[in-house]
Design a protein around this nucleic acid. Structure first.
Lengths: 248, 248
DNA sequence: CTCAATTTGTTCGTATGTATG
DNA sequence: ACATACATACGAACAAATTGA
């Protein structure tokens, strides 16, 4: 008993929210199947070591998400599964990256020319003379799934303002004959939503996101494209095959 | 004003924790430099649209983490940066994967023979006759950074119980002459810590983790190795180069 | 040195949320 | 449903430390 209280101390999130997280994962992973009757409140009570009301609050949360359905006298049943899980596959090579963004619906929310340059890591090349900053949001089915914060070298942007304003920059850049991209370092980490990102992705402040940093470096060693992309964690996945990858 | 309250409604995490997350990220990203004086409490109050006490609670959180130092009459200063960020590089090919786990310090916490087989996705091969389940925790500097839940085909495990019990399974399998691995599909997603994982990684229940699913498929199409790995989000990073990758 | 401005620290009262039994 | 306890959040007032005119 009382298994969770020490964890509660660790995370500062309300207990019933923690309990709800675990139960949500059980539904999602299929440990609790759709239509199935889950454990009674009393069983859950003793399993999690929390009070009855706390379990009820957690169930209420999942009920409002459409995952559970509690019926007096009968029990609590799984009524649905979370949607939109991991349908986005982050690209592993530049061709599929270009392919995947070609058909994206995006909305530019902010553009500013001649901004402070981004900070570059050791392997991310050298700074261009100046940058234009673009922020856009990608939508799927009217739901936002990623926010792109992008620095493009000023001279590149100047070549086709209109195009960069209305469609994905990476496609345009790879099509340019006079630019050769020789490196494209990418780093994927887990980050937290800042106020702007939270607002655009419609998630809570401080909630986790999949963060992707992608830089395109031309044959002069200049970082002509520097992107910080925040993906909604529920639609993000990165698939690869370690064997196909290594035999070349 | 009152910018955050709608976000608060979205996430159910205490407001001061949300504010602390944002401020922590500012320190980490270098927007607030080490030694620098940050905005006054009153400025933060109006920026975040929350009460004074809420800002103070957030600052107190970061103070206890060693990131901020508030001095009466002077202001609040950045006193350090978060440690242990992204030092683990998830492998992109099987050789570096084997290399990286060779020197790992791990602790087996649970072994069970003849368990229920894991559920396999479409591209993850066919089930072996039976499986042995192994759970281990990886440590770095006495800090846990990943939990590995592993199913090994029973016949493989039987070949060298001792070895599988005491060191990394993947190394052993790749060394075996009579087994040829032809596919190694890997999927990386963002998950949440269940009670066992939270306990082993010493994090809060429901906190995000980087989840890696790795399957080794032999030349008969059998999934001989099925791993679900949960990484501590703070030490996880996946680095690659989209260009080097695509030219082979 | 003193004074005023600035900034963090502390406390009160109130309201609501969370958790237990 | 109820009683109790504690956490969270607000607004406002006042105290204490620091700084510079």
């Amino acid at each position: 008993m009382n298994k969770l209280v020490p964890n509660y101390e660790r995370s500062r999130v309300p207990l019933y929210v923690q309990v709800a997280s675990v139960m949500r994962q059980r539904v999602e992973a299929g440990r609790w199947r759709e239509g199935e009757k889950i454990s009674t409140i009393e069983e859950l009570e003793s399993e999690f070591g929390v009070a009855r009301v706390t379990i009820r609050q957690a169930i209420e949360m999942l009920r409002s998400e459409g995952l559970l359905d509690a019926q007096q006298g009968r029990g609590t049943f799984v009524s649905g599964r979370p949607k939109n899980r991991h349908w986005l596959n982050l690209a592993n090579d530049i061709e599929s990256m270009v392919d995947s963004v070609r058909s994206n619906i995006l909305k530019r929310v902010y553009i500013e020319e001649d901004v402070e340059p981004p900070q570059l890591a050791a392997n991310e090349g050298r700074l261009a003379d100046g940058y234009t900053f673009l922020r856009s949001v990608q939508y799927n089915d009217d739901e936002p799934f990623s926010v792109v914060n992008l620095y493009i070298a000023r001279n590149l942007y100047a070549k086709d303002r209109k195009r960069f304003t209305h469609s994905a920059a990476i496609t345009k850049i790879m099509e340019m004959d006079d630019i050769t991209i020789v490196h494209a370092p990418q780093v994927v980490t887990i980050g937290v939503a800042d106020p702007e990102t939270a607002e655009l992705l419609k998630i809570g402040l401080g909630e986790p996101t999949a963060d992707c940093r992608l830089v395109l470096i031309d044959n002069n060693g200049i970082a002509v494209y520097v992107a910080d992309i925040h993906y909604h964690r529920n639609c993000f996945a990165l698939r690869s095959d370690l064997i196909e990858r290594s035999r070349k």
